[in-house]
Amino acid sequence: MSNQNISVTLSSTRRQKPEDDKLVFGKVFTDHMFVMDYSGDKGWHDPRIIPNQPLQIDPSAMVFHYGQTVFEGLKAYYSNGKILLFRPERNFQRMNQSNDRLVIPQIDEELVLKGLKELIKVDREWLPKSEGTSLYIRPFIIATEASLGVHPASQYKFIIIMCPVGSYYKEGIHPVKIAVESKYVRTVAGGTGTAKTAGNYAASLKAQEVAEESGYSQVLWLDGVEKKYIEEVGSMNIFFKINGVVVTPALNGSILEGVTRNSIIHLLKHWNMPVEERKVSIEEVYQAYKDGVLEEVFGTGTAAVISPVGDLFWNGEKMIVNGGETGELSMKLYNTLTAIQVGKEPDPFGWVVEVEQEEK
């Protein structure tokens, strides 16, 4: 399938591009999108780049009723006349893992990466060039079969849309306040936690709302069985530096395997820093805090890369991490990974993929 031709239909009108210093995440989208359809008799077919437009879809489309949908998130960066992607193949590999869990047909990872590159070239003028800015990329799949029967759909759409985004930290990195969630659960092993699917995020909104009402920006999820072991923070993976060792919850069937998480683990090992993937209980973290050895806490994800935690609230106790300041390791990881992403530092892992270089 990867040798399919990708047709291109250019938009006759152009949208207003926001200035780099006025970018708002996920509000203004580029002129074009990549689309591909699936049917039982044809498989995935008709890959095309078309003007960005509303979808015409039947009210009984199964995505609306049974939530059969997956998505991904990644970024393109401008660097010295080049357009760079960071580990895009990992995103499409993970999308196929999500597809498997949601019983959505596997995509040709090579073809959709080719389609993404072509889409970026068509909308290259949308790529912001100021430091810290990027082009956010959202590939997703929805079940479009018009049916109210509870079964895997026979028709789907794969779509990529893109939007220019500003720096996540406009005024520098500031640690966030996190509340440990003990009532609601995000997912459980055997559920859809390892898939990047809409339902996981819908399930998180209530706890997020409650946390925000109490002055906290995110929730720290515990496992859904014992309410004891740490899983994720908000929609990010979580790391703890305890007495010189970096610890992150092991992938257990309910934790999403983040691309940034994987990259951070690689970097730490490359620096010969001790890093452990294992079960981490909230009691262990609290005891480390009481013993004065909870040195840093940070989340990892595509949007922020590194999000330091300065205040962790659990069981009526407020844990102030590193004096509420961004830790040295968090800052080093953030600076190194963002520098690799935009080609300012060597890439010893072969993570950066060049889309296009400007003609001289």
Rank of each mutant, 00 (worst) to 15 (best):
L267N: 02
K228A: 04
F313A: 07
T302Q: 05
E231V: 07
L294Q: 08
I265Q: 04
G224S: 12
I264G: 05
E276W: 06
E257W: 01
V233G: 11
V275W: 02
I264L: 12
S235N: 10
A304H: 11
K227S: 11
E226S: 13
G224K: 12
G323Y: 10
L294A: 05
E276L: 04
V297M: 07
N272V: 01
N237C: 10
G224Y: 07
G324T: 12
S254P: 02
I230H: 14
F239V: 11
V275G: 11
L256Y: 02
N237G: 07
G323Q: 14
F313G: 01
G258K: 05
G299M: 06
V246E: 09
E276K: 09
G215H: 15
T248W: 10
G234Y: 08
I255C: 00
I238Q: 12
V219Q: 14
L294V: 03
E257N: 04
E226D: 14
P274A: 01
R278W: 06
Q287D: 13
T302G: 09
I282N: 02
Y229M: 00
Q218M: 10
T326Q: 14
G244P: 15
N272I: 01
L251M: 11
Q287G: 01
S254W: 00
Y286S: 00
A303E: 10
G324F: 08
V280M: 06
I242R: 03
N322W: 04
S263L: 04
G244I: 10
N237K: 14
T300P: 07
K241E: 15
V285W: 01
G301H: 07
G301N: 11
T300E: 05
M319R: 12
I242V: 13
N315S: 14
E325L: 07
E226F: 08
S263V: 02
V321R: 15
E277V: 05
N262I: 02
V293Q: 09
